[in-house]
Design a protein around this nucleic acid. Structure first.
Lengths: 193, 193
DNA sequence: CGAATTATCGACCAATTCATTCGAAGCCAT
DNA sequence: ATGGCTTCGAATGAATTGGTCGATAATTCG
């Protein structure tokens, strides 16, 4: 490969597909390697661990979504309707969950009920949570209800419930710091080097 | 449970969802048990093995699809267009594969190229193969080109390539017999007891 | 009731799978 | 051919997984 950074991106794109399809646990390093047409051990030259790859994927995805949402929010005139519309379309593209997103709009479900439902049915689709967080954040932005304390708590609660060994559940890392990293990417576009 | 047969069906429906999502290998008995809210070992009271469940699921699914197709075929007046249309719609509903089904119609791909593509991308989605078989069979029926030798060979070739330990790959069973069972269900509606 | 049959479960096992390591080796420019 | 960068196959130790077994509920039936 020409460039280390370029190769990492290649991995992120490739592994991202597999992760979003099978989730963290069910995705194996062998699969990732095979998709890249590479020896499994070679990947460890660019990434520390499977969780490291996953973290990179999530942050990458988060950044893209944030950009899209930011643009959309800027273009909003009649906040509620436009936003509702936009998020609706975005969610639809995430086929597997559209039913639930429909539900929350149609039946005016409580946010936490909603999270609970998702957790029960899709606790392997971490990216769903990500989108949920974004939705949550976007809503806050649009309605101008900024309460990062509440947001952080909601996210933390959600993550705690997941069985998947997400990187931010590692005992040795500071959960607060990780959360900050994510929130920075999501809402302020700051990406760590 | 009231009835042994009824419980088996419950398992088939529940496990079927998981199988079709994650494929045979990635689906664990623990998951199936959890979905049924039962102890894992209890399932073995009704089924011999994981493969046994899978076999039941596949045959069940095959039977439903066969019925649908049979009805559709009966209603065909202008065989080519109607059939094309019907299969098209059916395939669309199988979202993940629709691109490939589109491809085969639009670009007139060879049948075997198509199988190859599927195998490469989705060799864990055995039900995709099933649908392919049905499509294959339906095509034969509509175009009145009946050549069961060819059909059987195509299927066998396809199955051989799969890495998944499908029940029909077991050494101790007669592959021919298993194929016959499947074909009987698919094209003649005969279900084994 | 009580015995026999049916159904469920937790604990356990052997085999496999998996993430990760490591040393060797390929490749390429000097 | 030396040295740095990159790739890989084989090995490993820990975790997972399909399946077993004996105990124990639950249900049926005399």
């Amino acid at each position: 490969m020409i460039n280390k950074e370029e190769f990492r991106k290649k991995v992120i794109l490739s592994a991202g597909q597999i992760f979003s399809r099978y989730g963290f646990k069910k995705t194996t390093m062998d699969e990732i390697a095979k998709a890249l047409k590479m020896g499994k051990s070679s990947i460890y030259y660019y990434f520390e661990s499977k969780e490291d790859i996953f973290e990179a994927v999530v942050l990458y995805e988060a950044n893209i979504l944030r950009n899209e949402l930011t643009t959309a929010i800027k273009a909003v005139e009649s906040p509620i309707d436009k936003m509702r519309n936009y998020v609706f379309v975005r969610m639809k593209s995430f086929e597997k969950l559209s039913n639930y997103y429909n539900a929350i709009f149609d039946k005016n479900l409580d946010h936490f009920d909603f999270i609970e439902t998702i957790r029960e049915k899709y606790d392997r689709e971490e990216l769903a949570i990500l989108r949920l967080i974004i939705y949550h954040g976007a809503r806050k932005k649009v309605f101008n209800v900024v309460n990062s304390e509440y947001t952080a708590m909601a996210i933390q609660t959600t993550l705690k419930g997941l069985e998947v060994p997400l990187f931010w559940k590692r005992k040795e890392v500071n959960i607060e710091k990780r959360l900050d990293a994510i929130l920075n990417v999501l809402f302020f576009g700051i990406v760590r080097k």
